[in-house]
Write a protein that binds this DNA or RNA. Structure first.
Lengths: 346, 346
DNA sequence: TTGTAAGCGTTATCAC
DNA sequence: GTGATAACGCTTACAA
């Protein structure tokens, strides 16, 4: 095998050409500078033979552009974010950009540090799914004109490009579906109440109830975290009520796993004894004991659009246009909701 | 808010100090060069006030070290790899390294390109979970003395640092457990037969059978992919046998989801009608219709050890020591396996 | 105790 | 058609 060459100087020397010429050929500017076809070909071949690839660090320093973007997410082990990350990576790479992955662990201080870190890495832009409990540092970033796109957890106060699901619609649809099947007493197990997606889902739930003349019972709106334990705990409480609800709306997939665990333990069956609908579709949703009815988010679209918008900013420098995109959610109907209508038995 | 300063020159000018001094303070060499406490403090304060963080690109060019490592995995949307990625990112950042994430999509050619890409990014090292069907390009990397650690999919031919689960033991334990409960006819739904983890799991299965005087029936060793469809299809076939096996050993979690789907459709119950054991523990394993007995891999340990080994290579330059680490797997016993022993009923 | 200046590998400007 | 050279922001040997 050929031994490889590490800098353009060496390659130029080997070819007995100037660095300039080699650089021009390798950057596709051969025509522009009317470099002879022969030379062009020789350079290309040599680069291949000697396994030369330009040093992006040096290039970045010179061009003030690293072809690198930073991605900050709260938890890569959450399949929701993993799927988004995958689509972002794929799309970014297709466009010639690499990804620096940062996991904030849902910690606001870590998130702040990560932004500085990405800054010092001179990334060309940032996509962030914020922790969501503070946005000043994010606004600050965009004040420096560093392109930035927010995904998933938006905030009404800030006016930055944001791509998210239409959580209101998802919450509304799920609730309306339950109501359409005769459910009137619907518990709602929330995730983080302060987070915007949660607020929106809840708003959808409330509006759907109102629109159907169902009185909101605050005691049925419970929970405080997107994790499974929360779903479990709240369900145990719900099931021990004197007159329990006929359905549970779980605000995340992990919450619904907790619901299932609790019902299993209590010896109750879904949907015979209690109905369940959950936010977040997962690969296994269809294969649970009772295939689960879910509100599915367009995860890969979120990633794709985010990167598209970001690259538009990076490449065209047009910025601060109020991009605010809400993606439709889909209700995937399976078997975890029972119809209470007497007409059809289901 | 203070306006920020973008290079060390400006900061030095503002402080009326030389670039050198500022650089030294910021790199913690104040003592070494006996810089006055006063100056040191002034520099630190100014750096903070003006929100200065060194340009890692320039730094990298100068130092030939980017404090960046590349991570190549076949599929970040697979929770197994997402968990590993998370532990790697966390550990790396704690040690001052950032991560460039690359998803090969299980495509060997993409994998090769990604290695070049990471090279041109001048990463200080690479952690790779290879596609596994070719290793030449990986060997080549390590010939260039670029530190590299392999995770999950190893190969016997190459002698590079590798961290993986003890797939043989996992396969053996799972099979032995089934046998201990009286199962004698055990189907085995494989993933990619050529991949090393798969081969090892199968070897474990075979040895466990042999050690218990069970004759291997090749017709019971089926399947060809780690995906769900494979599990579904093979299970349908298995269930339609004249004298079907009493247990199925699924080689991945997705495969076992397919198994569950097929048994559900056929109206059979796990474990009453057929027992199931699966490789890969997942958050939902415990909350399936029948809580599943699984072989759990130490995902975060794999990540942690991989980064530890890699950083050792990067920092100490001691290389090519034959690190080959197999991590113990754990059998998590739940309810998906039925005892055929007459003594205990369960 | 602090400063000057070379050089990391590229690309762009200007020159021939 | 091709080449010499400055500059990108940083660290560090060498000076003072």
């Amino acid at each position: 095998m050929n031994k490889s060459v590490n800098d353009i100087r060496e390659l130029a020397r080997l070819l007995d050409l100037s660095i300039t010429t080699v650089s021009r050929v390798l950057n596709g500017k051969a025509e522009k500078y009317r470099i002879s076809v022969e030379t062009t070909e020789r350079v290309r071949q040599a680069a291949k033979d000697y396994n030369y690839s330009p040093n992006r660090i040096a290039r970045g320093l010179k061009l003030d552009r690293t072809d690198t973007i930073g991605l900050i997410i709260p938890d890569i082990s959450n399949p929701f974010f993993a799927d988004i990350a995958q689509s972002i990576e794929k799309e970014a790479r297709a466009k010639g950009f690499s990804l620096i992955l940062c996991d904030s662990g849902d910690d606001l201080n870590v998130e702040k540090d990560l932004i500085s870190l990405l800054r010092s890495h001179k990334v060309d832009g940032i996509i962030i799914a914020p922790v969501g409990t503070g946005f000043e540092h994010i606004v600050e970033v965009s004040n420096t004109r560093l392109p930035l796109v927010i995904i998933d957890r938006c905030s009404p106060e800030i006016h930055l490009p944001t791509i998210t699901s239409d959580n209101y619609q998802g919450g509304y649809d799920a609730t309306a579906y339950l109501i359409s099947l005769g459910h009137k007493k619907i518990a709602c197990i929330q995730g983080m109440p302060e987070s915007y997606p949660n607020k929106e889902r809840l708003r959808g739930y409330i509006d759907a109830c109102r629109d159907n003349n169902i009185i909101i019972d605050d005691d049925l709106i419970v929970g405080d975290s997107f994790v499974m334990e929360n779903g479990y705990r709240q369900t145990r409480i719900i099931l021990s009520m004197e007159d329990p609800p006929t359905a549970i709306f779980a605000f995340s997939n992990l919450i619904s796993l907790g619901v299932i665990k609790a019902t299993n333990e209590t010896g109750l069956k879904i949907p015979d004894d209690i109905s369940l609908i959950s936010f977040d579709e997962q690969p296994y949703s269809a294969y649970l004991g009772t295939p689960m009815t879910t509100v599915s988010q367009k995860k890969s679209e979120i990633g794709q659009i985010a990167i598209d918008v970001l690259l538009k900013f990076i490449l065209k420098k047009e910025y601060r246009k109020g991009v605010y995109m809400k993606l439709k959610t889909d209700l995937i109907i399976r078997d975890s909701v029972k119809s209470l209508k007497t007409s059809d038995s289901k």
